[in-house]
Design a protein around this nucleic acid. Structure first.
Length: 250
DNA sequence: CCGAAGATTGCCT
DNA sequence: GGCAATCTTCGGG
């Protein structure tokens, strides 16, 4: 196949990512409910520039979080230091830290105070593949041996996407609609979302409340979309070093 | 391929 | 103190 680009495209017939024909998403695009914005972000490209270089990913899986109406949203119980960006201007990036080791990235929607957002769950790297691989493999240079399956996993999952793009706490609050921002979202000129036939939806992943609403959207058939895993409540929190054991005879 | 379990920090009850 | 919008490794099939 071609070979001019640094990354592969997720879909046949898509406009190739490059310097021409792509433009920044407008603020007004994000000033709508997250459930409307979310599916339209599929096919757009998230870009992050830093001292190491540029990595860009086509967005292929997202979830909407609906603020005070949505018990699964970080903003459901009001503003805190952590979620403050969600309560601000649309088009900004809300990055949060979770599970003691991972970052995830959202795009803020609607009007200030609404605190709705779209979580970016998976992407295809379309620029900066070598840097993305280096970041995901902890610095080891494994770029030679990369099958399509392994490439698909590079940014498949919200924390993998952030790691591949180098997005973390310093990027929290960045304005994705500003040409001067390190983090931006772009779309082909005139883009108004993928054809409905290419968009699938279903329940959100890893969410224990409001599991019934189909607010997860993905590019139908895309290899980088994580398989659906229903939420499983924890109860295996025991088991520290030091020999806790199950009761005998139960 | 699949399921189970550990890692590791900060937020919220 | 519990557990999270997760990922990885490891062991078995």
């Amino acid at each position: 196949m071609g070979g001019g680009l640094t990354g592969s495209l997720a879909r046949e017939g898509a406009r190739p990512w490059g310097p021409d024909g792509w433009e920044l998403m407008s603020r007004s695009f994000f000033r709508r409910p997250a459930t409307v914005v979310a599916p339209e972000l599929l096919g757009c490209v998230l870009v992050h520039d830093d001292a190491e270089g540029r990595v860009a990913a086509e967005i292929v899986e997202v979830e909407a979080y609906m603020g005070s109406q949505d018990p699964a949203s970080h903003s459901y119980r009001g503003r805190t230091a952590r979620n403050a960006v969600m309560f601000g201007e649309a088009g900004h990036v809300y990055v949060y830290f979770t599970y003691g080791m991972h970052f995830c990235v959202n795009l803020v929607c609607e009007l200030p105070g609404d605190a709705t957002a779209v979580l970016l769950r998976a992407g295809w790297i379309v620029e900066g593949t070598d840097l993305a691989i280096a970041r995901r493999s902890g610095g080891a240079d494994l770029s030679a041996s990369h099958s399509g399956k392994r490439l698909a996993r590079l940014a498949s999952g919200p924390a993998r996407l952030c790691q591949a793009l180098g997005v973390a706490s310093p990027q929290n609050g960045a304005d994705a609609c500003s040409p001067d921002s390190a983090v931006r979202v772009c779309a082909p000129a005139g883009f108004s979302g993928l054809p409905a036939s290419e968009v699938a939806s279903g329940p959100r992943v890893g969410v224990s409340t409001a599991a019934e609403v189909p607010w997860r959207f993905w590019v139908a058939g895309d290899n980088a979309v994580s398989a659906y895993r229903p939420h499983v409540p924890r109860d295996r929190q025991r088991r520290r070093s030091g020999g806790e054991r199950l009761l005998p005879g139960s």
